[in-house]
């Protein structure tokens, strides 16, 4: 044979796990929540999502191509995920230019300044969201009622989220027990018939996504379960101590971005710890911070901040949570 053959070091086979596969599995997992948001917010939801995705992919492409002048990796799907997640974190009537600006910050600042996928310490979509929240607090916290609420009561143009109702009420000295009667029943909240950002409304749809990702082994249970468990336990303790001041755990699990955060934001592999031990610390940390911010902070919602804060600790967690060495004495 006079043919050139390849010489390379072992291993000579590769698993079928690729970045692309991971990213597209996450996208598939996002579909149920996407469907629910379109169901409730109609064309507005489609508009926000399309713009956010298009802008994210566009910015990733031009920054890589013209500023960094390197390989473009838009096809790996990670920019699409950032776009969808950014859209999921904003109200359905956000002005187009704000969405585009959010995408620019998410991709440009949140991801590319650090060197692209894999090097960013913070979840890019959250960087975009928090930027928007701080810059445009009113637009970011004025949620339109969903299509069905509007059909029943055309005057209810804006629907305050349960978290906002609670925060306002508590500030005014009202009792949580009374305030809870103003919010939709938990079952509605579970399926998504409630005001809020696009993707966070339906715990049910998000949990389907979680199950899919667990099945595909894209993520492990460690972060979502410890985060949700911590929120449950911590809020139960507060609620038990003072039910008039603190809402019950189910309320906290179903409202705001807890489910979205636990399932899709905190589990972002790039910005979460490597070892299982580290993941547990990370999940618990986010849970604790979320409840602290919600109950004692200025903002009604604390998930995004909690995740970003814990993102900062990831290098430290990785340093101290090493896997156990084979043969190491216990």
């Amino acid at each position: 044979m006079n043919k050139l053959i390849t010489i390379s070091q072992s291993p000579h086979v590769e698993g079928d796990f690729t970045v692309k596969k991971i990213m597209y599995s996450v996208l598939i997992a996002l579909v149920p929540a996407l469907a629910v948001s379109i169901y409730y917010f109609g064309f507005d939801a489609v508009r926000v999502i399309l713009i956010a995705v298009a802008a994210s992919v566009f910015f990733e492409y031009i920054i890589q191509k013209f500023l960094i002048k390197g390989k473009t990796t838009v096809t790996d799907g990670s920019a699409i995920i950032t776009g969808v997640l950014l859209a999921f974190n904003v109200p359905s009537n956000l002005p187009i230019w704000m969405i585009i600006l959010g995408a620019l910050i998410a991709i440009g600042v949140g991801k590319m300044t650090f060197g692209g996928l894999g090097k960013n310490p913070f979840n890019p979509a959250l960087v975009g969201r928090v930027f928007l929240l701080i810059s445009f607090p009113v637009d970011m916290t004025t949620w339109p009622s969903n299509r069905f609420a509007l059909a029943i009561n055309p005057d209810a143009v804006t629907g305050a989220t349960p978290l906002a109702i609670l925060k306002e009420g508590v500030k005014n000295g009202e009792k949580v027990t009374d305030l809870l009667s103003q919010i939709p029943p938990y079952l509605d909240m579970f399926f998504g018939n409630v005001g809020g950002s696009l993707g966070e409304i339906s715990a049910f749809a998000l949990i389907i996504g979680l199950l899919y990702m667990l099945m595909k082994k894209v993520i492990s249970w460690h972060i979502p379960l410890t985060m949700l468990g911590t929120i449950f336990v911590f809020s139960e303790i507060l609620h038990f101590a003072n039910p008039e001041r603190f809402a019950d755990p189910v309320f906290h699990l179903l409202t705001g971005g807890v489910m979205l955060g636990a399932i899709f934001m905190a589990t972002d592999m790039v910005t979460s710890p490597m070892s299982k031990k580290g993941m547990i610390i990370f999940g618990v940390g986010i849970g604790v911070l979320t409840i602290i911010i919600r109950n004692f902070g200025a903002y009604p919602e604390g998930v995004s901040f909690a995740i970003l804060i814990m993102n900062m600790f990831v290098p430290l967690i990785n340093k101290y949570c090493k896997p156990k060495l084979f043969g190491e004495k216990v």
């Binding site: 790996d76 692209g116 996928l117 894999g118 299982k276």
Partner: peptide, 30 residues
């Protein structure tokens, strides 16, 4: 004997910090 398409390595991408290499290492290394 490997077929041509099995012989070449795929393009290297950035580490996405997924931690898979850590969880499969039988010696507990990173």
């Amino acid at each position: 004997l490997f077929e041509e398409k099995e012989s070449k390595r795929q393009d290297v991408q950035n580490c996405i910090r997924c931690g898979k290499c850590v969880s499969v290492c039988p010696m507990g290394l990173e």
